[in-house]
Design a protein around this nucleic acid. Structure first.
Lengths: 219, 219
DNA sequence: CGAGCCATTGAGTTGATTCAAATCCCGTGG
DNA sequence: CCACGGGATTTGAATCAACTCAATGGCTCG
């Protein structure tokens, strides 16, 4: 069981401004859970019963499209809140969350969340701001999908990943997952990789991509 | 100048639950403005100075892509809040808002918004919920773009429009704007229309589309 | 060490785009 | 009221990025 007061990643997340007594509430209402690769945190259609907050590991949030493909909506790691969208909008989950690597996270029961929000109402502003930012990102993803090629989107994704996911060039993602994130098919992604390999920009082994020349990502 | 207390569309929007005294604050801090077709409400890059709330007319929110095309992010009408995303996330506008038809809306100054939120803190929950819903919609738009054909997206858009925009089959939108909304090119949209015309589903004249057989939208 | 999954490559198809030309429609001014 | 000009719409033809399907090769894990 992790103590919120000693939770290092917390300081980079939405709960960074909480005071001692509010952390006590969280501690009281939370459960720390560990998931193995492939385990589901929640599934499309279920009712949110609380908030999830990642501690370590990587989680993918995805939905199943009408045509039966898996569309990844976001990757989450390091004190990101997961599943808060449906929680706050009082809907069933519209997407599933699954551990991509071994993941430890905390589940905060609904009553706990409500208590903390009651204690510090300014917290809802923090969340409002956060969701607004995510909305912008989502709109940008849409625009990119219309406007950019698979190659451009892939470069963009790698650039983002290099900075954010603690991966030492070891993405725990399959080609299929990468493709899904940027809205493409695996074969197309592979062809771009293959191109970049020929030009000496990257080296690949299954499940690992080494960026040899980071400059190529700029442009 | 519209009085919030008599504002009919208000009851369908985010401010529907406000009490007398809160409406007084809004009234005190708001300006009612009328825009002609083509007028800008705000532009990409500007700093939000308050909230806009549409009263009548249709507004399009769009951004200019790197390749110089206009990407429409949303249509807004009838007591929708516009421009709140950047307002709450404390960013400059990432998109512009422009009147598509003659539009009347209210501008509520920042201080007014802050006051109302202070008076009724539960309002930030209302907004939080709303933004969460928009986020889901945005994610669905993304998924649709990956998963559906232009024809499907266009049908979906028409279905949505029929219910929402008070248009009596007179969309005040050019083919180019329709295309932008669904993430396609005008020629492609036109070809789909042309197809549907041949099959007797719709009739078109410039700037007007008449749906002859609503059933075809279902499937 | 083999089974099975994942990654890679190849070949063919297609939905959508681009560019250009033709036509339509609408408001304006004579 | 009608002719005119210019923007929007429509059609055509060619091209292309990305997709599909199928076959092969390579890792990985039991």
């Amino acid at each position: 069981m992790i103590d919120c007061k000693n939770c290092l990643p917390r300081h980079y997340g939405l709960f960074c401004a909480l005071k001692e007594q509010e952390l006590d509430i969280l501690n009281q209402y939370k459960i720390t859970q560990t998931y193995r690769k492939g385990d589901f945190i929640f599934r499309e259609g279920e009712n949110p019963k609380g908030l999830y907050c990642t501690f370590s590991g990587v989680v993918k949030v995805f939905k199943t499209t009408e045509s039966g493909k898996e569309q990844i909506l976001l990757l989450s790691q390091g004190s990101e809140m997961v599943g808060y969208r449906s929680f706050f909008s009082n809907e069933k989950y519209h997407a599933s969350a699954q551990a991509v690597s071994e993941t430890t996270l905390c589940f905060i029961k609904k009553e706990g969340v409500q208590k903390v929000f009651k204690t510090s109402p300014e917290l809802s502003f923090v969340f409002l701001k956060k969701v607004c930012e995510e909305l912008r990102q989502s709109e940008e993803k849409f625009t990119d999908l219309v406007d950019k090629t698979v190659e451009q989107r892939l470069a963009q994704f790698l650039k983002m990943i290099v900075g954010n996911v603690n991966c030492n060039n070891q993405l725990p993602l399959s080609r299929e997952e990468i493709a899904s994130i940027i809205g493409a098919r695996p074969e197309t992604v592979i062809r771009v990789f293959s191109d970049w390999k020929k030009q000496g920009f990257i080296a690949t082994k299954a499940k690992s991509i080494t960026i040899l020349n980071p400059q190529f990502l700029e442009q």
